[in-house]
Design a protein around this nucleic acid. Structure first.
Lengths: 188, 188
DNA sequence: TCCACTAACGCAAATTATTTGCTTTTATAC
DNA sequence: GTATAAAAGCAAATAATTTGCGTTAGTGGA
C-alpha cells in the first residue's frame, strides 16, 4: 500500500520515476517555473497525473525530490594539488553552481517542501563531500579545518547569501576558505 | 491596474490586507499547514478568493508576505549590559524562535516564494538589527565584530543548521558568539 | 459639496488541478 | 506457473484557480 523509497532498479516503478524526473528536468530547463504543472509533467512522462499525486503528493514534493537527486554528488571531488587547493576549487565551483538561477531554484525547491527529509539529505551530502577533503589532508599530515568549521564558516555563509542576499562572488568565496585554514596557510 | 506595495493606511485596501494576514496567522497557528487554502483564508477574512488571487497571486506568495511581515523587527533589541552580552542574548532568542516549528515554517515560506523580494527583506532586517549592536559597541569603545563577521559566522551557521540540519542548541549558539568576538573577550 | 476617476473588490461562469474508488498491470516469491 | 501485493491506469467527483464584467469606495479637482 505504500511506495518504497528506493524502487528496485529495472522495475516498472523505477522507469516511471526516471521518466517523471526527466520530464521535470526538461521542463525546468526550458520553461517558466510557473507553467510547470503536474498534469503537464505527467503528459510528458507518459504517465497519469494520479500516479504522480499518489507517489509524490504534490508539486513541491516532486520538485524537492528532483532537486535533491540533482544535488547528490556524482563522484569524489577532483584531487589536483594540496587538500587546501582542492577544497578551494571545489567550493568555488559549488558556490557558482548554487548561485546560478537553476541552482538557486533547486535550493528553494528542496527547502519549500513540507517534508524536510530532502533538505537534510542535502546537508548530509555536503558533509560527506567535505569529509573527503579532511581525510585527504589527514593522510598527508596537512593541517586542515574540522568539518564543523568548514560547514559553519564556509558553506553556511555562502548558502545564506544565496538565499537571503546577493550571490557571493569568487573573491568572497576564496576569502572564506583562506580564513578558515589553520595557521595561516593563507596565500592570495 | 496594479496593486500598490504599501496601501494607504485606513483605506479599504489596507483593511483587506490586515484581515487576510490575520486570517493566515490564525490558521497557521491552529491547523495543519496542508489544510490552509486560499478559499478558506478568504472565507475567514470575509473576502472573495479572487481578491486574494489578484492581489498576491498564489498561496506561496501570500505566506511569504505574512512570514516576512512577522519577521520584521518590532523595536530595538534590549540593552541590558555590554554590547557583547546584549548581542548574545538577542541571538540566542532569535535562534530559538527560528528553530521552533513556526519559525522554521516562516523561513521556508519566505524562501519558497517565486519572488525573492521577501527573502531579501529578511536579510535586510537582520543587518539592521545587528547594526544596532555594532553602533552601541562603537559608542562605548567596546571592541566588536564587523557586520560581515556577524552575518557570516553567527547568523549564517544558525540559519543553515535550521534549514538543512538539526536545530542548533543554546550552547552552540553561545559558542558562535564567543568565537566571533575580537581579542578573546570570551567568557563561558 | 459634488462629480469624475480609478484602484480594488465582489460575483459567477469557465477552466484547470486534485482527489478518490475501482480496475488492471507487472514484478516477485513460492 | 500461480498467488500476492505494490504500483499504475481510468474516470467521476470535488476543489482550486482564472477571468470577464459590474460595483464600491477612496482621491482629487472644480
Amino acid at each position: 500500500m505504500g511506495y518504497r523509497e528506493n524502487p528496485r532498479p529495472g522495475g516498472r516503478s523505477a522507469r516511471v520515476q526516471a521518466a517523471v524526473h526527466q520530464s521535470v528536468r526538461d521542463m525546468l530547463a526550458t520553461m517558466d517555473r510557473a507553467d510547470v504543472t503536474i498534469p503537464l509533467i505527467a503528459q510528458r512522462a507518459n504517465v497519469t497525473p494520479s500516479t504522480i499525486y499518489r507517489r509524490w503528493g504534490d508539486l513541491q514534493a516532486l520538485l524537492a525530490d528532483v532537486a535533491a537527486s540533482h544535488l547528490r554528488p556524482e563522484g569524489e571531488p577532483a584531487s589536483i594539488g594540496s587538500a587546501r587547493e582542492d577544497l578551494a576549487a571545489w567550493v568555488e565551483q559549488y558556490a557558482d553552481e548554487m548561485a546560478s538561477g537553476l541552482g538557486r531554484q533547486m535550493l528553494r525547491d528542496v527547502l519549500a517542501a513540507a517534508d524536510s527529509a530532502n533538505a537534510e539529505k542535502c546537508g548530509t551530502y555536503m558533509r560527506c563531500q567535505l569529509s573527503v577533503f579532511i581525510a585527504r589532508a589527514e593522510a598527508c599530515g596537512e593541517p586542515f579545518p574540522t568539518l564543523t568549521e568548514l560547514m559553519d564558516h564556509v558553506i553556511s555563509p555562502i548558502i545564506y547569501r544565496i538565499l537571503f542576499d546577493q550571490a557571493p562572488d569568487s573573491d568572497y568565496v576564496r576569502g572564506l576558505v583562506t580564513k578558515v585554514m589553520p595557521e595561516s596557510t593563507a596565500r592570495t
